[in-house]
């Protein structure tokens, strides 16, 4: 039983990391209806930029600030050069544009900072919590716990931003009805820049946490693929969905690996979430928290 909880908690904490990636997708999808394929590339770009500045001798906080600035600039130019010219085009066009954008961002990142793997030290050790180890015998990583704390804080900040501020309200308004948002005087162009900036900020936090764990490397871009089952489970429009979806994916893949894996020869961790998502699509295509259209009867 103790082993079960160890696996479960470890999985949930890993799931938080998936949630973070999915969060970036949800933000942009909600505000502009665009499935941003470049989110993974943004994570990579943000982490690599931070590490790059650190290797140039900048202190950690300055490197993060500069990376944040770079993400803001990226948001600005994306809106100007990609979204604005494609306004009113079908969703699939915008989706393909973000695929192109992903390659572009990956290219720029590696051109600027090189393609080698960088280590990133956030000063949080990836080792078991001794107190927990001593008292219950469970092996839970300190890093995972801190990462979850950071993720929770990030989500709390976003929730306040969306519900209590004027800009947050405008973002939700745009997500609901573009036309009406225009009619009340909300500038869509500005909102898009803001939402890409917020997504860039989320990408930076994600990139730092994943980078600290696995090293800052090109493989970070594949996180985008890991976010897919999370989004399908949780629903594309819901922040809560991204969180819960991430937790489900994290916990289920670890549990499946441990309990079902041995019977089928192991190695199911990497594909189990996709199978789960596929099953989910058949039963509840809008996801757990996805928006069902509000229809008055």
């Amino acid at each position: 039983m103790q082993f079960f909880f160890e696996v479960l908690i470890g999985g949930l904490l890993a799931g938080v990391m998936y949630s973070l990636v999915a969060l970036g997708f949800v933000l942009i999808y909600k505000a502009s209806g665009v499935f941003n394929f470049a989110q993974g590339a943004m994570v990579f770009f943000a982490a690599l930029t931070t590490v790059g500045f650190i290797s140039m001798g900048a202190p950690f906080w300055l490197a993060v600030a500069l990376a944040l600035l770079a993400m803001a600039a990226l948001a600005f130019f994306t809106e100007r050069l990609v979204l604005r010219p494609l306004v009113n085009q079908p969703q699939i066009t915008l989706f393909m544009a973000t695929i192109g954008l992903a390659f572009f961002i990956e290219g720029i990142a590696q051109l600027t900072w090189g393609a080698q793997v960088h280590a990133l030290d956030l000063g949080i050790a990836d080792e078991p919590i001794e107190w927990l180890m001593g008292n219950t015998g469970m092996n839970i990583s300190k890093f995972d716990l801190v990462a979850s704390g950071i993720a929770a804080a990030l989500v709390a900040v976003l929730a306040v931003f969306f519900n209590k501020t004027r800009t947050g309200r405008a973002l939700r308004a745009v997500a609901d009805d573009h036309q009406a948002a225009l009619a009340v005087g909300i500038s869509l162009h500005r909102i898009w820049v803001i939402v890409w900036m917020v997504a860039g900020f989320v990408a930076l936090v994600t990139g730092l946490l994943w980078g600290a764990r696995n090293g800052v490397q090109f493989a970070l871009t594949f996180l985008a693929l890991k976010a897919l089952p999370v989004l399908i489970l949780g629903g594309f429009e819901s922040i809560a969905g991204a969180i819960v979806g991430g937790l489900i994916v994290g916990a289920s893949e670890k549990l499946a690996e441990v309990y079902i894996g041995p019977h089928v020869g192991g190695g199911i961790e990497s594909w189990f979430p996709y199978a789960l998502a596929l099953a989910f699509l058949l039963i509840r295509p809008e996801g757990l928290f996805g928006e069902r259209r509000i229809d008055r009867v």
Binding site: R166, R169, R172, A173, D176, D177, A181, V184, G185, E291
Partner: peptide
């Protein structure tokens, strides 16, 4: 300011939040 045909309220915002978006500018 235009009030569009078919109302176009923000369906997932509360009535009060809808009113507040009007003051956005």
């Amino acid at each position: 300011v235009q009030v569009m045909e078919g109302r176009h309220c923000f369906a997932h915002l509360t009535v009060e939040e809808n009113l507040l978006t009007g003051a956005y500018t």
